[in-house]
Every structure is written in C-alpha cells, then in structure tokens.
Computed example of a mutant assay.
Amino acid sequence: MDTLLAEAAELLAATTNLNVTYTYDQEKNDRGTDGHLTITNGQQKYTWGVELKKRLLRQVLAKLTLVKTVLHDEKALIIAPYINEKLAELCREMQIDYLDLAGNAHLNNPPIYIDIRGRKPPPEHQIQLTRQLTGKAFQPKGMKLVMMLLLRPELVNQPMRVLADEAEIALGTVKQVLDDLKQLTFIIDRGKKGYAINEQDLLLTRWLDAYPHNMEAKLKQALYVAQDLTEIRNAPLEPYGALWGGEVAADAYTHYLKPKTYQIYADAEAHKTLLKKFRLRRLHANETDVTPIRIVEPPVAIEKIKGKLPGYATPLLVYAELLNSDDPRNLETAKRIYNDYLA
C-alpha cells in the first residue's frame, strides 16, 4: 500500500506519455482520500482524489467512502493492485474512475479520457491472491462453518461436535477450519473468557470473496417458469419449507429495490412441493421472453438460514447474492443491508 499510488502513477505515465504526478495525504482526511493524482496537459491540471485498496471487491465497492464521483471539485479515483474486468465494468457503470498495477485504467475528466482494458494481473498479485484463498476455512465445506460463525458468533465456544452438526460437515473438517481461523487470527483465545471471533468484518470480507466459487457455485439449482408469477410472488413460502432469497428478500429488508430476478431456497422435498403447488415448469433453452425463478438448494438445513423476516433468507446470504450479481443497482441495496443488518 505504501507504494501503490506511486507505482500506479508511474505506470500510467509510461503507458500514456502524459505528465502524471502524485502526492500522498499524511493521514485520512474528512474527504476520505489517501492522496491525489494529477495529470498536467499544457497549462491545465486535472486532479483526482485517490482511495487506495489492497484488493477491490464487490463488497468494497458497495461500502466505498467515495460513493460519489465528485468530492469537493475533485474526481474520485480508486487504485488497487488488480481490478478484474467484471469489477472494472461495474466501476465504469457507477462512473468511478480506477487504476491498477496491471495497467488497466479508466479516467474520465474531460478533456482527459483514458480507457485501457484487458491487462492481466502481475504475477506477484496472482501469488498473493492464491495464498488468500487457500486453507480449509474458505474452501466449500469450511465456508459453511464460517457462515454459521458469522450468523452466530457464540458458536465459537461450542464443542466441535456441535459445530459439525451446525455446519453439517465432518468433525475432522471442523478442527482443520478452526485451526485455520486461529492461524489467521480470526479466532482468538481470551483465556478464562473463552474464544472470540476477531476482526469479524474482515472475516466477512474473506467469506464474501470466496462465496461465488466456493459456496454459491456448489449449490444445486434449477430455473423454472411459473404459470402465475404473481401468485408465487405473493405467497408465504415458509409453510412449504422454503425461503425467498436474492432481490425479493432484498426488497423485503430494504423496501428499496424492485426485484427483476427471483430466487428461492428449498430443499429436495420443498422443491417438489413448490413445483406442484405453483405449477412450475422447467425454463427451456433460449427462452428469453419469460421471468425465470431460480430454486436453489440451501447450504445447510433451511431453518438455519431463516432471516429476521418470516419467509426470507438471512440478510447475510442476501447480501452475498447481491454482491455476486452483475447489476450495479444491487450494490446500493447491498450497502443498505450491510448497514442495517450486518455492520
């Protein structure tokens, strides 16, 4: 982080042949900036207020302090070691300028316009990324235990057999995950007071980072079309052993989002019941003129992921689903869910 702004500025200058300078702020100020980057073009200077990120993630975008593109007459600029194309696209849609050390850049401060895409991350960043995602805690089975600890931090002091039952994983896996979390200092020993979850927000970030590949992608799911979408949308699902997730749950928790997609958590038995009760049929290939309903197998027993509202999944899963969406409108809703239920 100490050299991130300098490296990014020097790379931008070398790539564009522009006069690029930078300054570091001594400490975070009321604007929330870490420094400034300036491009001089003739007699004109164009300056961005910079926020540095060790790693830019969807959840970081949702919580950015620089949520506006202009701060005190300065454009906002995010700099990270690497920004993948999906996140870069979200930044562009949110009108947030960015730079990374791979050489990707988007700066729009007329008449300055720079748009460089498709650069791969530096090898050292790929090694760091791999290290961050290794270990049992953030692998598919470990993710279930971490989720339960995020939902119920008091479980950290329960016997391993209880944790195995709660996360529905093997006893040996529980020990490996706990050892991993202790090594990463996410679980600390307070002596007579027992164990405690440490840096819970950072633990949440790591879990969210692994969620798309190591949890969501591992869940059985299928797409259906309802004979009457309004009927199932207005029906309480809890009596059928199912829960709304995704945008429908997000709307219930925030009253801010008009759902465009529909997701339901249901185990095998509830799945069959829903198909029969609401006359759901499989979505056909290349069928685009309908609104599909995604039925997803819950990561653990359905009663363990019930949220604060009857019939809806826990805000933790809803938050993860919104961040895993490619729709920028979901990021603001995700931020509201974080502030209201997870912060």
Rank of each mutant, 00 (worst) to 15 (best):
E303V: 00
G172M: 07
L184S: 11
D180R: 00
I114M: 07
T23A: 13
L316G: 02
L150H: 06
K28L: 15
R233D: 14
A226Q: 10
T230Q: 15
A170F: 02
A320S: 03
H36A: 07
D179C: 04
Y341G: 05
R131V: 00
K28Y: 08
I169T: 03
A222K: 13
T134W: 07
L257R: 15
L87I: 07
E231W: 12
R329K: 14
I197R: 02
A164E: 01
K63A: 14
Q26K: 10
N214S: 03
R31T: 11
L18H: 10
N108Q: 14
A226S: 12
P310Q: 06
Y312N: 03
G42Q: 13
T333W: 03
H271Y: 08
K276C: 03
H271W: 12
G246Q: 01
L283S: 01
L229T: 11
R58L: 05
E238A: 14
N198V: 02
G35P: 09
I83T: 15
I127L: 07
R279G: 00
E27M: 05
Y253E: 08
L107Q: 11
A62E: 01
L309K: 15
P110S: 11
Y319S: 02
Y98I: 02
Q227V: 13
D30F: 15
K120E: 13
E74V: 00
K192T: 09
P315E: 13
Q26R: 15
P315A: 06
L309F: 09
E93M: 15
P110T: 09
T134F: 03
Y256K: 07
Y240S: 10
W207L: 03
L243T: 02
F278K: 09
N41A: 06
E247K: 06
Q128P: 00
T230A: 15
D25L: 11
Q139D: 04
M148E: 12
D34N: 13
R206N: 06
L223I: 01
G49Q: 10
M94Y: 03
P121V: 01
G191R: 01
T291S: 14
E27Q: 12
N330K: 02
L133N: 15
E287H: 00
I188E: 15
L309D: 05
A62N: 00
E93W: 06
A164V: 01
E51G: 04
L37M: 08
I187S: 07
G172D: 01
L280N: 05
N234L: 11
E51M: 09
P239M: 04
P110Q: 14
R190F: 08
I293V: 12
K141F: 01
M147A: 11
S325E: 07
G35F: 06
I83S: 10
N330C: 10
K45D: 09
K277R: 14
P153D: 03
A235P: 02
E7G: 04
D179L: 00
Q176L: 11
R31I: 01
E247S: 08
D201V: 08
P111K: 13
Y240C: 02
L323Q: 12
E199T: 06
L323W: 03
L87N: 12
P122I: 08
E10P: 04
T205S: 15
K258C: 11
G311S: 08
D340V: 09
P239R: 05
G42A: 11
E238S: 14
Q176A: 11
K192E: 14
P292V: 06
V290P: 10
L61G: 03
R294T: 13
R190P: 03
A137F: 01
K272D: 12
V20N: 07
T16W: 05
